[in-house]
């Protein structure tokens, strides 16, 4: 529906008219209906919407975990399949999904250990330094079970950054944390991303989170899952905890909530 292009040399992520439905012929449910969007390199885009709007499916299509029925997705100009083959996609799932038998350091090293041929000629990060910049320097030899939920999620984010992917795909990574912790993790992610700009697709159901982190917010509607509105977040960067108190932030919050409200209203008719 809405296609925006950010020009900075590299094509970034392009989702073109993607449709996806599930179920048997008689009772097919259209989860994504003609979704188009683009994420420029170094752009942070959040997807928000009611449950059933297909935001998770959209994320899975872009991450190459689900194949679209129609339409195309390209990452850095190549298909999702070859992007995965070249390790261009960094996934941060909803749960940290760290391997409990590996230390934090070994968990973060994992992406470098598998699919090694894709390591050639890329700016792979030093896992120890990376963990230190995520505030996990003292925990690198600990096991995931010894860390708090917030620390585990940071380790999972470090695991997605370590192999220098082109796009980071995050599926409500902070949803399991308590509110105080969430805010801390958001600001931490923001700070790190500010100095390591990647294209980010961030699925969330928190309005302040979407505003705080994003350049653009994509509001999706359900039945069928589609893009209802795209809201530009003009807030200057770097953003800090004070950003929450600005009038601009509150205006945006009102706009996003209004958009979500509109989407929900229509769903009930």
């Amino acid at each position: 529906m809405t296609t925006q292009t950010v020009h900075d040399g590299r094509p970034g992520v392009r989702v073109d008219n993607v449709s996806k439905s599930f179920g048997a012929n008689g009772s097919r449910v259209t989860v994504l209906d003609g979704v188009s969007l683009s994420i420029g390199m170094g752009e942070f885009v959040s997807v928000i919407g009611p449950s059933g709007c297909g935001k998770s499916t959209l994320l899975k299509v872009i991450a190459g975990l689900v194949e679209a029925d129609e339409g195309s997705v390209t990452i850095d100009g190549t298909s999702v399949r070859s992007a995965a083959d070249g390790k261009l996609i960094g996934l941060v799932p909803q749960s940290p999904a760290l391997l409990p038998w590996r230390t934090v350091l070994d968990n973060v090293r994992l992406p470098l250990t598998v699919n090694r041929k894709a390591n050639a000629g890329r700016a792979v990060r030093d896992p120890e330094e990376l963990l230190a910049s995520f505030g996990l320097g003292a925990a690198i030899h600990k096991y995931p079970g010894q860390l708090s939920g917030g620390m585990q999620q940071r380790a999972a984010i470090a695991r997605a950054f370590v192999f220098d992917p082109s796009i980071l795909v995050m599926d409500e990574p902070f949803s399991a944390l308590d509110e105080m912790n969430r805010d801390q993790q958001r600001l931490g992610l923001l700070e790190f991303w500010n100095s390591n700009r990647k294209a980010v697709l961030f699925v969330t159901h928190s309005v302040p989170e979407a505003i705080m982190l994003s350049d653009r917010i994509i509001v999706m509607a359900a039945h069928p899952g589609r893009i209802a509105e795209v809201i530009d977040v003009g807030l200057p960067r770097p953003r800090t905890a004070e950003t929450y108190d600005t009038a601009e932030f509150r205006d945006l919050e009102r706009d996003v909530r209004a958009a979500l409200h509109g989407v929900m209203e229509k769903a009930h008719v």
Partner: peptide
């Protein structure tokens, strides 16, 4: 979820 991470990394069957 861990399997999803392996899949996005295009880890081989053996590596997984």
């Amino acid at each position: 979820k861990a399997l999803d991470v392996f899949r996005t990394l295009h880890a081989s069957r053996w590596e997984t």
